[in-house]
Computed example of a mutant assay.
Amino acid sequence: MRHVDELADRARALLTPGSRRVLGIAGPPGAGKSTLAAAVVDALGGQAALVLMDGFHLADAELRRLGRADRKGAPDTFDAYGYGALLARLRAPRHGETVYAPSFERELEQPLAGALPVPPDVPLVVTEGNYLLLDEEPWSSAVRPLLDEVWWVAVDDTVRVERLVARHVRFGRTEAEARAWVLRSDEANARRAAPGRDRADVVVDLDSGRVTPSAAPA
């Protein structure tokens, strides 16, 4: 991925001796957040650990109980308060205590508890998800204040949609089912997340390779 070195240097600049910082990577579904986050963490070696917002998806059984299963991935289909509580815990590491964050298993389409270890001596946590910059409760109060910096990942919408269709096909849907879900559900979530771009500290444009600091106030 282009410009990983530049972005890794920016992430390193967040490191502060004796404390832990949290970097957020936001963007619409299919933008490439997971790939970018993993690349930055890999570039930083043992100085960074990865945590996923998607680990806080509500389980399908709970979504069915709430009547929200047909729009899985919308902001109210996540445990935002639980995600915020994990971020708060990560910001205050305790000697000798490894924190285990949940992951998300795409083959099962379910969260997976205790899958991502964050050792106490790791100075940077990188977390990624659609709604890190959502200006709605509980996200705006439970999540955003716990992030030291947030990057927005931008990519051509046509490319992004085709990635999403291919992803859903890879995990079991027919192409027709995948495209219908993407255009109805994933794109609704993309529109919901889109205003967050103006609140990001940095915009990473994967089409042009530009990394642009935001003019928005911190």
Rank of each mutant, 00 (worst) to 15 (best):
G84N: 12
A85H: 08
L86T: 08
L86Q: 09
L86P: 05
L87S: 04
L87M: 07
L87T: 04
R89S: 13
R89A: 14
L90G: 10
R91A: 14
A92C: 07
A92S: 13
P93A: 01
P93Y: 04
P93V: 06
R94D: 05
E97N: 02
E97P: 00
T98E: 01
T98C: 02
V99E: 02
A101M: 01
P102S: 02
P102I: 06
P102V: 06
E105R: 11
R106P: 09
R106S: 02
E107C: 05
L108C: 06
L108W: 05
L108R: 15
Q110K: 05
Q110E: 15
P111F: 03
A113W: 01
A113H: 06
A113L: 10
A113M: 07
G114C: 01
G114F: 01
A115F: 00
A115T: 05
L116C: 05
P117T: 05
P117Q: 01
V118N: 01
P120K: 00
D121T: 12
P123T: 09
P123S: 10
L124E: 09
L124Y: 07
V126P: 09
V126N: 04
T127P: 07
G129Q: 07
G129R: 07
G129M: 06
N130Q: 09
Y131K: 13
Y131F: 14
Y131G: 03
L132H: 03
L132W: 03
L133K: 08
L133Q: 04
L133F: 03
L134I: 10
L134R: 13
L134T: 11
D135G: 09
D135R: 13
E137G: 12
E137T: 15
P138I: 12
P138N: 12
P138S: 07
W139P: 12
S140M: 06
S140Q: 14
S140T: 14
S141C: 12
V143I: 15
R144E: 08
P145H: 09
L146P: 11
L146A: 10
L147F: 02
V150D: 01
V150I: 09
W151S: 00
W151I: 03
W152A: 05
V153K: 01
V153M: 00
V153G: 00
A154T: 08
V155Y: 00
V155Q: 02
V155K: 01
D157T: 14
D157H: 14
T158M: 02
V159L: 14
V159H: 02
V159S: 04
R160Q: 15
V161G: 03
V161Y: 00
E162Y: 06
E162A: 05
E162H: 13
E162C: 11
E162K: 12
R163T: 02
R163N: 07
L164A: 14
L164H: 09
V165K: 10
A166L: 13
A166I: 03
R167P: 10
R167H: 12
H168W: 05
H168Y: 08
H168Q: 10
V169T: 08
V169K: 10
R170W: 01
R170F: 02
R170K: 12
R170P: 04
F171D: 06
G172M: 07
R173P: 06
T174M: 11
T174Q: 11
E175I: 08
A176Q: 14
A176V: 15
E177W: 05
R179P: 11
A180L: 07
A180S: 13
W181F: 13
V182W: 03
V182G: 04
L183E: 15
L183H: 13
E187C: 12
E187A: 06
E187F: 00
N189E: 05
N189F: 01
A190L: 04
